[in-house]
Design a protein around this nucleic acid. Sequence first.
DNA 1: CGAGGCCTTGACCGCGGTCAATGCCCGTGG
DNA 2: CCACGGGCATTGACCGCGGTCAAGGCCTCG
Lengths: 196, 196
Amino acid sequence: MHYKVTSQATTYASKINEYVNHLGIDVLSALDNCASIKVYKKGDFLLRQGRICTHSFQIKRGFARKFYLNNGKEITTELFFKDDIAISLSSYIMQQPGKEFIQAITDVEVSVMDYASFQEAKKIYPDLAILDGMIGDYYSIWLEERLFQFHTMTAKERYHLLLTTQPEIIQHIPLTHIASYLGISLETLSRIRARI
Amino acid sequence: MHYKVTSQATTYASKINEYVNHLGIDVLSALDNCASIKVYKKGDFLLRQGRICTHSFQIKRGFARKFYLNNGKEITTELFFKDDIAISLSSYIMQQPGKEFIQAITDVEVSVMDYASFQEAKKIYPDLAILDGMIGDYYSIWLEERLFQFHTMTAKERYHLLLTTQPEIIQHIPLTHIASYLGISLETLSRIRARI
DNA sequence: CGAGGCCTTGACCGCGGTCAATGCCCGTGG
DNA sequence: CCACGGGCATTGACCGCGGTCAAGGCCTCG
């Protein structure tokens, strides 16, 4: 079996990096002023269900996940690594209570950015509005690719794809969360792993 | 069985409408100048695989779909109705060749908007840039909800949800495309429909 | 009337889910 | 230091959802 590793999302991510690297020093410091560093312990919640997502969290160290409850079962929708930005999208956009939790899987250090401050900064620096748009576009592309996987791939294929594109996941994140993220039961994931 | 019909995506869609209704006359006419009306016949392609998505298509009359090929099989990813905007996202954003087709299911009348012209218009009218951002956010929310369905619901549940939220689909779109859109085979869809 | 598109129905079977038992690792307290 | 308990992962037994293959029905249109 052979899996292609490159994705539209990753190529676009490097475009965003490029854009950030060419931002003016004043723009970058304005961005910095919206944020502060914070540390959470393993198991802590950065965001709880029912709360408004008033901040975005960029991971500096450690791992986190986003999940919601469905009939009492936790469904993990996203896993976060270094430099990833964690928000509960619909709650963040509409500034209304959301259904998602964001939780530290290990001890994490995050750059916490205030929603309101960032909105103000965007008005002053159009470059930040453009950056915000690019990040939103990135997320859409990423979601489309994830949907593609659910639409066309078997459990085994989804796992192997994850394995090749993000091998660091396996070392640091409990299989329970990986299984949920892949949309399969812990037992089947275990069996897939057993048969190499 | 009971399905909730309201969704985050639809509430946000009405916010976008509200925003458009409060735009200045000059902004709206600038928007109009980027677009032109065009008619396609049933089966025609508005966009082909391998081409760059240089236009967005807002449906004025009729129905369309977006799909790609996976091992020779057509996978329908989106169905378009009145007022929906059809693009191949990653191709549109990066202005690079994409893998998706957009095809008229019935005769359609669409408002075709030029990418380059719209980019220019956004620079002059920040309100349009904001509108563009809102539409992008809407698509993300919609994708999240669709992913939620694939993550947690059975084929039968997905079908019934579609039936309650968009009953017009059944009258106008061939079951082959609906099945593909739901990620199930035509045969299972047929069986689901047979058992009420 | 025949051909082709579209949908239905039947037979079969494998992927992946659930339930339950067991194993393994590790922190805590007797 | 060992014993116990809890969290996490593995393994087995069972079975149902949904996929594939194949045949047949039913339109519409040339």
